[in-house]
């Protein structure tokens, strides 16, 4: 199972991932032609507003759309030289919770209400370690609970999720995800439901664990601050598509896509002087059943008309080297607009 990377392929490589759902209202084009990669020891941040396709992307990597009969997944997902879209259900199942693991947004609903926290972690450990006794699994679980900073782990082992505080619950979920030393950890908005103080603790923990185990991390969030704290690379998603992709420093300091500008303009920042007014994106996010023609962002983009009619008719491709953008505006034009019109208002 553990083939070592010999080729040039990154540890996780996603190519042209497309996910659609057939619903009564029509086809939901949840993710279109997404491509990205993460190396071991690195963190990829995925940002975007709700409904932009972040969770669907991560669930696709774990193969969790397979149980939904209305989901269609296309493209390639390479994890350590193994292709996952075409792999059998059983092969993917063995990777889940083993080589790749996931943490979810709402830790209360992510825990089974009728099983103790300990039992749920033990179960995850034993399914990947056949023949390990219950006692050994228990010891391992308690170690893990202690490692993620849960006090009195022996006592906590026998408690239920609802008896934990929000922060402790998320710690327990992290312990559950990490119990098999995964090499890829996907965290889907792990701190959205938590207070900033607890968020800081959890992010700190994830950073620590990554340093310790050298795993690849995908951090999904809608908070640009969280991405800036953790990510080496950033994907910005809009309407199911990646519209900007690049190293965190580039994306934050020289953002190239009008939507990214809008996101930055929308958030008040503690590290800057108070602005008189925020500069939000106008309008609302599109429906994924009925995406606008051309650039999906055009109904909300202040620059849509600047480059002839292309924005209205032609879907912009994600283009560029390390820092890639999906927008028809010429590169110099984008740079100029950012520095002259956008940056002064941030």
């Amino acid at each position: 199972m553990s083939s070592t990377t010999t080729g040039t392929r990154p540890f996780l490589e996603v190519k042209d991932l497309t996910v659609r759902f057939e619903t009564d209202d029509g086809i939901v084009q949840a993710v279109s032609n997404s491509s990205f990669a993460v190396e071991r020891g690195k963190t990829l941040g995925i940002v975007g507003e709700s409904g932009s396709g972040k969770s669907v992307t991560s669930l696709a990597v774990l193969g969790l759309h397979r149980t939904r009969s209305n989901a269609k997944v296309a493209g390639e997902i390479w994890l350590d030289d193994q292709e996952l879209v075409t792999a059998t259900d059983e092969d993917v199942r063995k990777l889940r919770g083993g080589k790749m693991a996931m943490i979810f947004q709402d830790p209360l609903s992510a825990m089974h209400p009728y099983y103790t926290v300990g039992a749920q972690i033990v179960e995850g450990y034993r399914v990947h370690h056949k023949g390990v006794s219950k006692k050994e699994a228990r010891t391992r679980t308690i170690d893990m609970l202690a490692r993620v900073g849960i006090p009195q782990p022996e006592k906590r082992f026998n408690e239920y999720g609802h008896q934990f505080s929000g922060g402790m619950r998320q710690r327990a979920m992290i312990a559950m995800a990490l119990v098999n030393d995964p090499q890829l950890l996907i965290a889907d908005e792990p701190t959205t439901a938590l207070d900033v103080t607890v968020q800081a603790q959890i992010l700190d923990l994830i950073r620590d664990l990554q340093d310790e185990f050298g795993s690849a991390v995908i951090m999904i969030t809608h908070d640009l601050g969280v991405v800036a704290e953790l990510a080496d690379d950033v994907l910005v998603m809009y309407g199911g598509k990646i519209i900007e992709r690049g190293p965190a420093a580039d994306v934050f300091h020289e953002p190239q896509h009008p939507y990214t500008w809008g996101l930055l303009g929308s958030m008040p920042r503690l590290d800057r002087d108070v602005r008189d007014r925020l500069t939000p994106v106008k309008g609302t996010p599109p429906s994924l059943i009925n995406l606008p023609d051309g650039c999906a962002f055009h109904p909300r983009c202040p620059y849509a008309g600047r480059n002839g009619n292309r924005s209205f008719t032609e879907v912009p491709e994600l283009r560029g080297g390390v820092h890639a953008v999906a927008c028809h505006l010429p590169a110099e034009e984008k740079r100029r607009i950012f520095h002259e019109e956008v940056a002064p208002n941030l």
């Binding site: 969790l64 889940r96 919770g97 693991a101 992510a110 825990m111 089974h112 399914v127 979920m173």
Partner: peptide, 12 residues
């Protein structure tokens, strides 16, 4: 969500 969690652990 907890069913999704169970699957994500690799349970059959």
């Amino acid at each position: 969500d907890y069913i999704r969690t169970a699957r994500s652990k690799g349970l059959t």
